[in-house]
């Protein structure tokens, strides 16, 4: 395929350009599912409202000014709202199923011939998926947060917001590389969904989806901080809420970057092993 349209390009921009095209096409394809996205986001608000009501009841039972762990009621509600925001920005949607299907149906064969790397190709599609999802759901989500404005805590300063956003980008990369690696299991097993759901269960609990991790007993929270899970959701939120500062912040970023690198290396490694198996199966 020719992307230069007759104009001359140096090698590097052309290489970037083809991925830019992937993103563009990906956004258009994803926007076809806009009603699905909207339905998903709106349906997702129901359990969110439910869990917020449970916490409100718990705080009400403890009298005015109650704190749970280090959280006031407003902070607790903000925490869950931020979970929804970070989730909208970084969650892997259908990517893992599609990758597994690509492998099972043999669609990846063409990538072995094309001058396009499958991992970057999928990352572009992941980015376009998130962009399309945000384009559709940003307004309803913002309205929902606005309705709970009196409980919503804003970040302490602009640098905090900037750190939060950088950490969120790393979270998205970590989410993607891990999902990508899991989906590559399709080289070896017929049905990857069980494995994906098992990992997802651990992620759901240990990444802070259900509750903020620092209301756990400190020893347990300490152990968790060495696993990749908190860096898939909890860490950026703890930056936003000012829970991670100074040395803890630096350590968290180091661990997060470390896990992103490990996950990337793992993805590359599993792919190279899988491709060997794949070509062998192709005869």
């Amino acid at each position: 395929m020719r992307y230069g349209k007759g104009r001359r390009h140096t090698v590097r921009p052309a290489r970037m350009r083809k991925y830019w095209h992937v993103i563009n096409i990906g956004i258009q394809n994803n926007l076809a599912y806009r009603f699905n996205f909207l339905a998903r986001a709106l349906f997702g608000l129901i359990p969110l409202v439910a869990i917020l009501s449970v916490w409100q009841t718990i705080y009400a039972g403890q009298g005015a000014g109650a704190r749970i762990g280090a959280y006031s009621l407003a902070e607790m509600i903000s925490y869950y709202l931020l979970v929804t925001v970070v989730d909208a920005l970084t969650a892997v949607n259908e990517d893992d199923w599609q990758i597994a299907a690509d492998i099972k149906d043999g669609n990846i064969s063409q990538f072995l011939l094309k001058p396009m790397d499958y991992l970057w190709y999928r990352l572009c599609l992941f980015l376009s998926g998130r962009t399309a999802y945000l384009a559709v759901t940003a307004i309803p989500l913002a309205l929902f947060i606005l309705a709970l404005k009196k409980y919503f805590v804003f970040p302490a300063s602009w640098p905090v917001l900037l750190l939060f956003l950088s950490s969120t980008v790393l979270t998205a990369l970590l989410q993607f590389f891990l999902s990508y690696t899991m989906a590559l299991l399709a080289f070896w097993v017929l049905e990857v969904s069980t494995f994906i759901f098992i990992l997802f269960a651990f992620e759901y609990l240990a990444s802070g989806h259900l509750f903020p991790l620092d209301i756990l007993p400190p020893a347990l929270a300490g152990v968790l901080s060495f696993t990749p899970f908190p860096y898939q959701l909890y860490f950026p939120i703890s930056i936003y809420m000012g829970k991670a500062t100074g040395g803890e912040l630096a350590r968290g970023f180091a661990l997060q970057v470390g896990w992103v690198v490990i996950a990337y290396a793992l993805a590359r490694f599993v792919w190279s092993r899988g491709i060997k198996k794949y070509s062998a199966a192709g005869g």
Binding site: I68, T194, F197, Y204, L205, L210, F211, P217
Partner: peptide, 28 residues
């Protein structure tokens, strides 16, 4: 494996309740 998946999610809900009741005696 599907049975394992369901068991894990069940355990997950129970541990959520376990964590909540570390911090409160009652919900209502």
């Amino acid at each position: 494996l599907w049975i394992v998946v369901e068991l894990l999610w069940f355990a997950l809900q129970l541990s959520f309740i376990g964590v909540i009741y570390l911090h409160t005696n009652r919900i209502g």
